[in-house]
Design a protein around this nucleic acid. Structure first.
Lengths: 180, 180
DNA sequence: CAAAACTTTCAGTTCAAACAGAATCTACAG
DNA sequence: CTGTAGATTCTGTTTGAACTGAAAGTTTTG
């Protein structure tokens, strides 16, 4: 079991805390942080020891990380155990997470809004106000979805470049966009 | 106490659930949903009854929503009680929330990464690998921050328009950006 | 200034998510 | 086929966030 340096500890703890704020299990986030900082793939046993959590807890958490597609099992010659490693490309990692969260949270919300707008009873009092609010919310999520779909169609590196300089482009575009 | 229609109930419940997934208290999210759908400002008492939660719970939750800047107290003639209403502009609402979350979560993370990179001990084993990982993560958060700062400087309506058609612009840029 | 109306704070209590450890399952080696 | 190493699932327990109701605080009104 590799002992952690001060910086590594700080990173893992911070990342775990960050996870909880965004609805991600603290241990899951910590394991990801550990693997992200690790130069070699680690067996579950070693992860459990390093972070002082139960082996079973690691098993469940790893499964979730595999579900996000940002951690995978690799095999080491002469060792029957699974070793786990994190994706190293930060941009791709966040792209994956965002894509999944969209699928799990944004899409169902859009569906709920769509169905609600359908179900609105015209005889009900205050229905116009409700419709307006739901439609406004739906419009927002539609726009976010459209943007996401477009980004998805770009090769990974491009997204990074666009995001890096995109802000400046937007600035220049401001007058044109506003007047259109 | 206004009784809720089926659609309103569905929206409030969904929004509450959505909140928990993003690290926002369920009751806080539900109260926001209720106020968002309400054509008039509501007193705390009525919110408590409508959602079946304790009056004190409403008090705390409202305070948090005021903290986000998306709910405010208004006064009704002939009534001493505070009445609460939600901002109705969805885009502005999310802009505010994003801005705050950046301040509360992204900024401290950048700070942690910055400090960690400083503290790295060159004599420690594997320090190069760690530095590389931290730097990559820092680069990502720097880019996100830059984009955010640029968006912040645009008038509200513009952000909406840019986001709506921005995707198409990106699409056209694809070849150019990829080859740069 | 005292009572009334309303709000916030505080001290326990509740509850769901997270967790540990045991039991079970799976794959492989001998 | 049997034993062993490792992974997963299951069940009860723990823990911390969320919540309630009571107490304290604040503002208004007569």
């Amino acid at each position: 079991m590799a002992t952690l340096t001060g910086v590594q500890k700080a990173y893992i703890l911070h990342w775990g805390e960050m996870g909880t704020r965004w609805g991600i299990n603290r241990t899951v986030a910590q394991i990801h942080a550990l693997l992200y900082l690790s130069p070699r793939a680690l067996p579950a046993e070693e992860i459990a020891e390093t972070l002082s959590v139960a082996r079973s807890n690691v098993s469940t958490s790893i499964r979730e990380l595999e579900g996000w597609g940002i951690v995978r099992a690799v095999h080491v010659l002469g060792d029957r155990r699974e070793h786990y490693e994190s994706m190293k490309d930060v941009w791709e990692m966040f792209r994956l997470v965002i894509e999944q969260r969209k699928r799990r949270e944004i899409d169902p919300t859009r569906e709920m809004l769509r169905r609600s707008l359908e179900e609105l009873d015209p005889k009900e009092a205050g229905v116009d106000f409700t419709r307006e609010r739901l439609a406004a919310m739906a419009g927002f999520f539609d726009a976010v979805t459209e943007l996401h779909d477009q980004m998805k169609s770009l090769p990974t590196g491009t997204v990074r470049k666009l995001l890096r300089m995109g802000a400046k482009v937007s600035g220049k575009k401001k007058s044109r966009a506003a007047s259109s």
